[in-house]
Design a binder for these strands. Structure first.
Lengths: 102, 102
DNA sequence: CAGGCATATAACTGGTAAGGCATATTGCGA
DNA sequence: TCGCAATATGCCTTACCAGTTATATGCCTG
């Protein structure tokens, strides 16, 4: 886990990879087909994701099957926490305002 | 809002700026003192944050007072949503497991 | 054990972004 | 209006990152 999740998630392609793996684990080749990227590009992104602990992989014959590991995302969610309460606070205020209009 | 929030948040300094503005709006000079960075560096980060809609600023005499706008963070939170439910699912499973151990 | 698949890595390239210093801009007070 | 204070911007250098092509590694099958 050399780099933090924020840095890794900055790349749209990596978020797409995660979004696909979230629905079903898959091999590198399947990701290549799904994302329309070259195989080395996909492998490199997977390397970064692995180093950040966001994916794990297991070997199945010649294939490597990748799956998501959400653990590092909790750091992102934790950072986001205070901000989330800010916009829910705003929503609450809006609701109160609307209520008072009736 | 030229760039997306993910890219902007990848920079640790920018997250620190947001974290400070979240507690209290402040001027550029106050941020410079608080973060121990050069004034141009801070101004540049604020520019990026502004372009992404993450902060707004108002003019007060010679100062510019910056404050957080959480709206763009909702995109991040939305993306995170499905993953969050993944780890709460895991937590639920763990709880059931621990319960069954009693 | 040879050949072919699937995946990883190396070397290179172009683009981009951050930080530093110097300077421009803007608003204010004397 | 002059000059100062606060902030923004330009320019330059450096570092890093994504993507490409070519090649290496590992594993199965005939």
């Amino acid at each position: 886990m050399t780099v933090d999740a924020f840095t890794v998630l900055a790349e749209p392609s990596r978020r797409r990879i995660l979004d696909r793996l979230r629905r079903a684990e898959s091999s590198v080749g399947e990701l290549v087909d799904a994302l329309g990227m070259s195989q080395p590009a996909v492998s490199k992104h997977l390397r970064v994701l692995r180093d950040a602990g966001l994916v794990t992989c297991r070997t199945a014959a010649q294939r490597r099957i990748y799956r998501v590991d959400v653990a590092p995302l909790r750091a992102v969610d934790d950072w986001l926490g205070p901000y989330r309460s800010m916009w829910t606070a705003h929503l609450d205020a809006l609701e109160r305002h609307l209520d008072s209009q009736e």
